[in-house]
Design a protein around this nucleic acid. Structure first.
Lengths: 189, 189
DNA sequence: CGATTCTTTGAAAACAGTCAATCTGTGTGG
DNA sequence: CCACACAGATTGACTGTTTTCAAAGAATCG
């Protein structure tokens, strides 16, 4: 489990054995079964979560009880409610497992300490935040610029793995359209 | 012009006169007339831009020549194409002034240097990135969860000043709807 | 298998977009 | 100061897309 994380780190930065040992000290492994919550609306998000295996989603539930998927995340991605971690306020979002999933959890204090102790790890985390920012900015761009069909096409191009692994209704939710609409635009080619 | 920036800094962090002097050294003031570009599609974005007076927008233009507003920014906000600054690649976006505007420009090297020399300024910039991230995440959330009328209502609640200062057609573009549609949903109350 | 969940399909209604014309307010040049 | 031009906003009639509700058909899991 930690091996996957080690691989991930090696692909981005250079670390010695001492750094790895330190990182491992603060990593809390956890296994989640399909449908199991990592974070539930109303709770404070305490962990930055690195996914070593599996697939998760972050979503909000509106007044009508409908779910709206904010993002998906699979192996070698981070997921958490940044807003809640930073502010210490209850989250408005849920995070749960779409498949059986294995993660490494790092609480806020650990991340701060590790970023400080291992500057290259700090840079990695900052780069990750920058990338996430750009990803969301692009998502906003696509969301306001394209119609349902174009959004779906772009989603499949960008995330072919998600298109296969995620139930269609959740993809529809992610795109901001109804499952019936997605089914229909898929069927006409 | 720098005074506005100084006020902004004082509201967030504590700095001594030496820090202010250093910041001022690297701040390049610039005046933009209404409709003037700060960044044009295809150019590399070289500056982080702090707005001291006025109002700007960042937008993309699609194949049909239609503009899609990614974000607005006014006094005491930062604007730039982060993706282009970081990567050094040409920007897909335009940034221009909606009103006559005054800004302070900081190139990438200056920001890096200042963040390093003045840790509290570094924290401010990081906090700003975190805030921007959360803002875009929330925008995605609203964009996939609400219909045209709800999006407009929330926009007015969140940005009452923009609702007054920005032409309606640009607000429509920001919300991902047509100007006629916005006009119509405004007129029924 | 049987039960549950996910997907597809149909018909009608609601919503948003298109195109064209008109209206409004602003600012400019004569 | 007026007349005009121009950009922005509104309105109408129509088209097209997406949602809604309901039912039936697959697929998956214990």
């Amino acid at each position: 489990m930690f091996e996957v994380f080690k691989e991930y780190l090696l692909q981005h930065i250079e670390l010695n054995e001492h750094d790895f040992a330190l990182l491992e000290t603060y990593a809390h492994p956890k296994k989640l079964r399909k449908r199991q919550y990592l974070l539930q609306e109303g709770d404070v998000c305490r962990y930055n979560c690195f996914i070593t295996h599996g697939l998760m989603r972050m979503y909000a539930v509106d007044q009508k009880g409908e779910e709206h998927v904010i993002r998906f995340a699979s192996e070698n991605w981070w997921i958490s409610d940044r807003e809640s971690i930073i502010s210490g306020l209850p989250s408005r979002f849920n995070i749960d497992a779409i498949e059986d999933t294995e993660v490494l959890l790092f609480d806020k204090a650990s991340i701060d300490l590790l970023m400080h102790q291992i500057p290259s790890f700090g840079k990695l985390i900052t780069d990750m935040l920058n990338k996430s920012f750009v990803t969301f900015q692009n998502r906003v761009h696509e969301s306001i610029s394209y119609n349902a069909e174009e959004k779906y096409t772009k989603f499949v191009e960008r995330y072919p793995a998600f298109a296969l692994r995620v139930p269609q209704a959740m993809i529809a939710s992610y795109l901001g359209i109804k499952p019936e609409t997605l089914s229909r635009l898929r069927s006409k080619r």
